[in-house]
Write a protein that binds this DNA or RNA. Sequence first.
DNA 1: TCTTGACTTCGAGTACACTCCAAGTGTTAA
DNA 2: TTAACACTTGGAGTGTACTCGAAGTCAAGA
Lengths: 124, 124
Amino acid sequence: MTIKEVSEKYDLSADTIRYYERIGLIPHVPRKENGIRDFDEAACGWVEFSKCMRNAGVQVEALIEYVDLFFKEGTEEARKDILVEQRARLQEQYEQLKATMERLDYKIAHYEELMVKKCPNLKS
Amino acid sequence: MTIKEVSEKYDLSADTIRYYERIGLIPHVPRKENGIRDFDEAACGWVEFSKCMRNAGVQVEALIEYVDLFFKEGTEEARKDILVEQRARLQEQYEQLKATMERLDYKIAHYEELMVKKCPNLKS
DNA sequence: TCTTGACTTCGAGTACACTCCAAGTGTTAA
DNA sequence: TTAACACTTGGAGTGTACTCGAAGTCAAGA
């Protein structure tokens, strides 16, 4: 698979994918004889994984560390620790998000009430 | 209340609070005769609100727009629209977060299993 | 053969959200 | 009265994560 196909498949710019490889957020992608990237299933998997994690807000730094450990023997515990820490971060973000959404709901309801009062005929 | 007290109360740096006022993310804070900020309840409320929204990931730009409209008559609908849009953004983020946390749980479980296999005596 | 277009690398530029700094003022405590 | 300290403004600097540009290679079609 070319970088363009992968880019379209996962809706990430080719620049971003190259950037991720450059900084080690995804492992080295196999190349054809002419040097052009030729994504295999594993490489695609990493792209998909990194996209998922980044979308949720996992830091680039943590992912780089994880990928780095992934290719070293006996680092299972350290890898797990990274995942656990990031899991906790996401959990916190999740709570914050929930609370803020409730607050927004409350404010939105207030505005809706206001608007019904202003235009009683439009209350549907 | 001084900026220092507000800063401590909401765990936001004084620099950040001044920055928020400067860019209009919170309305103008009342001053004493000598020009020093003197936060009243309303000003504190805005600080707290902006902190909550920013922590959840609401963009600075959207909050500036909201605060701007807040002091203009007849902008209730526009204000509501901003809140509704931001609510939708947070909802999306929420789904993404949930999915990613599940995925991390799965991976963490995998590592735990691995480690139990390696050290059967430590399976507790 | 020549042009078009996708790819390569690497370094520079950008956007966002702070965060810090310099220069100056005002208040309090020794 | 002088030092210490918190505050003011406006502008410059920083960190993170991309995003773009330049210069060059390579393969395919007119």
